[in-house]
Design a protein around this nucleic acid. Sequence first.
DNA 1: TGAAATATTGAATGGATGCTCAATAAATTG
DNA 2: CAATTTATTGAGCATCCATTCAATATTTCA
Lengths: 201, 201
Amino acid sequence: MPKTSIASIRRLEILEHYYSLIREEGLEGASIVKLARRMEIPSSLVIHYFKTKDELIQALITYQLEQYEQQFRPRLQMLAPEDRLSAVLAALFSQEWMELADVQVFYSCYPLIFRNTAVRIRFQELFARFHTHLTSELALAKTIGLIQVENISIASHMLIVWVEGFNFYANIHQQESLFRQISTELYAQACTYLGFFPTKE
Amino acid sequence: MPKTSIASIRRLEILEHYYSLIREEGLEGASIVKLARRMEIPSSLVIHYFKTKDELIQALITYQLEQYEQQFRPRLQMLAPEDRLSAVLAALFSQEWMELADVQVFYSCYPLIFRNTAVRIRFQELFARFHTHLTSELALAKTIGLIQVENISIASHMLIVWVEGFNFYANIHQQESLFRQISTELYAQACTYLGFFPTKE
DNA sequence: TGAAATATTGAATGGATGCTCAATAAATTG
DNA sequence: CAATTTATTGAGCATCCATTCAATATTTCA
């Protein structure tokens, strides 16, 4: 008698398969029939758990954004306050960060914000939380005199813009050397902007 | 006996309708049948000009990226060298700039870079040209001592990252006040980064 | 244990999709 | 003008799609 009923297990199973299907074939290539075939269940079972395709996509996005957030949250909370900020900044522009969410799925869902209000709101919420975390991180750093920047809320927006722009641009080029050049420069420029001078070791 | 044969006219007509169809229904909702219905022609005529759907999408992206480029090119070449850079920078983070390409179409096509090599290359080329223009703009500014930044090639990459990140982030929020705040800050920070101090009027 | 609720199946529906094909109309060119 | 190429049409095909439905199996719980 597990608290997680069979229903929630199945739903999760379906979402995971849907996720990997989209990863391989894109959002437009991922149909319920293909999904069911891949799981070796009738498509009607999928519909049993998600009444319509829109409901499935909605759940997929929630799942995907939760995954993303669950991964970046711990990365923002670690270490002693002095080392912390530089670690956070380095993480933001790292290869590792870019692979938090599967880019294929993430960028396939993104254009839905233009037609699907529910999706737009989910993205807004995600980035609102991202912004909150960054802001409290900057607040901490400012308290102990690590950074000088005046408006930490705006500074957080700036960091997000840089991270997202970096990901967007890097995906197009998939070129190791350019990637490193830009990420290094972004890191340095972010430090300057924040008025932050990490003690090198 | 126009040099543009009836074929190229038709092809363009089809692409324009396809573009506006995607704008309304997204890439996944835009089928050849719907496209033909909207143009009041049989779908086989569409196939006559674009043998497969992939060919149609390919042409659409070329068309879309050309539109985009034809619009930003003139915006980067104007005015006297002294006023020019600040105008360019202001343009990059403007509402107007964001509307150069239809966001719906642009961001719907973007995820194709992950599975469609031809699409990826087209995006690479577009941004390569964008980068070239920006770099020569910065080179000019540096020659006349307007900016101090050392590596103008990297600086151009940075500008692109900021522009794209800004667009990505702004689309999510569609909130006028936040938009203005961030764009103002980005402009200021870009000036600082470049070592550029526009003479205010 | 037995009744009600849920999970699972498989067949079926109507509609859309990408695309083919053969036929006709129009334009181009020798 | 005649021959050939191109543009346009409409019917048709196999396939896939999201979703429905009725029937059966399994689980839950009183």
